[in-house]
Nucleic acid binder design. Structure first.
Lengths: 212, 212
DNA sequence: TTCATTATTGAACAGACTGTTGATTAGTTG
DNA sequence: CAACTAATCAACAGTCTGTTCAATAATGAA
């Protein structure tokens, strides 16, 4: 069976290539990378690359898939930790466990995540990550029936999910100073209270008229 | 002077190339495009391409810069239309004029904007667009002094700006069904009321406790 | 219209990268 | 140790790049 990943040589080679990919993407961006660059930086024969990957796009795709799979697994580990609803979590001052786990994972894989979600990254990965976020976030938020004068649901969804991605990016690129729990709580407040209340631009009591 | 863009041949050639770029990006993505592809689709000599652009990246950059410059000009045309503040606009049921103009411009250049902001697009352009959005959006929102237990400003900023980009993308990719004014109002509501209130997931009166 | 200017063309060039092959060497598992 | 198989090295044709040159065509100004 050649499908087994048990051979130390294979693991080593793949790791070298992936590390090289991360480094090179940081430096010059994915576009400018050649298979030659990758194998030179990884210090392996160029032919060896093609033993494992079809081309550089295949390499990127495999790396991305791995990240997404691992993120999906994370979700499995927090099923038990969820309270009944969104609201209850907030009132205890606790962020959603899933989001905390998400930020913990991002921190572990900081180097790759920074590159792939950065200005030289892959917009397709952003789309995939947003799909995953949507799946796990929205089920906590949409328990109650909807009322009057509502914004279309798809735009609510796009708004919230994109906003969360924005927080993730800001966190990654500003050096991940806050703990996963803190930053998860920040994201939570922004959505739960709305950005203006969360940022303290209006107080809780001082209700602006919302008539029209 | 060869810097003049008055020569009809130059204008024609550049336009052919740019159209080819948009079409090809839609089909195969920027990565997979060669200068050969571009010039064949544009039906011009390959050497001619290099008379105007350094390489395909230079082409993309020039196209992006042009869009951003035009968007910046749009801002100039609405200076007079702004009310004193954010709050007043909302209470009249009117979105910010700048955002309306933004969506109008996006609609005019729909084809290119869809590609560049899509899964095969350019993440660097997203960053630049967000910078522009930040500049024009935030000055309307941050009039009042900030209060207690606030989320860090940078995260508020990242949240709101990213969220707006999300609405833009959702609108572009779902066929731009709403009018620029409608969709601008949708984005406005989501930020002004907060996403949950805007989507009707909680009512205005029914204030959830926000104690912790 | 004429004329000087200049954008475009077509062909050719070396250089680089790709993806594949075959024979050989080296490392791994049991 | 022995069988297996991953990694290496060299070489291949094919494609794309970026540049150059002389020849041609289109343009704007007088």
């Amino acid at each position: 069976m050649s499908l087994n990943n048990t051979d130390r040589r294979i693991r080593r080679t793949k790791q070298m290539i992936r590390d090289a990919l991360t480094e090179l993407m940081e430096d010059v961006g994915f576009d400018a990378i050649t298979v030659r660059d990758l194998t030179e930086k990884a210090d392996i024969n160029r032919g060896t690359f093609y033993l494992h990957y079809k081309d550089k796009f295949d390499l990127l795709e495999q790396c991305e898939r791995e990240v997404l799979d691992e993120l999906a697994q994370v979700q499995g580990h927090v099923e038990g930790l969820q309270l009944e609803n969104f609201y209850e979590h907030f009132n205890r001052g606790e962020p959603l466990p899933f989001i905390v786990k998400l930020f913990e994972y991002l921190k572990e894989n900081g180097a790759f995540m920074r590159v792939i979600l950065g200005p030289k990254g892959d917009p397709l990965f952003q789309v995939k990550l947003k799909e995953m976020l949507a799946e796990h976030l929205l089920k906590h938020m949409v328990k109650k029936a909807r009322i009057e004068m509502a914004v279309p649901f798809d735009y609510f969804k796009a708004y919230v999910i994109s906003a969360h991605l924005g927080v993730i990016q800001e966190w990654l690129f500003s050096g991940m100073k806050e703990s996963p729990k803190e930053i998860a709580m920040t994201a939570f407040k922004l959505t739960f209270l709305g950005p203006r209340r969360a940022a303290g631009l209006i107080s809780d009591e001082q209700n602006e008229k919302t008539s029209p």
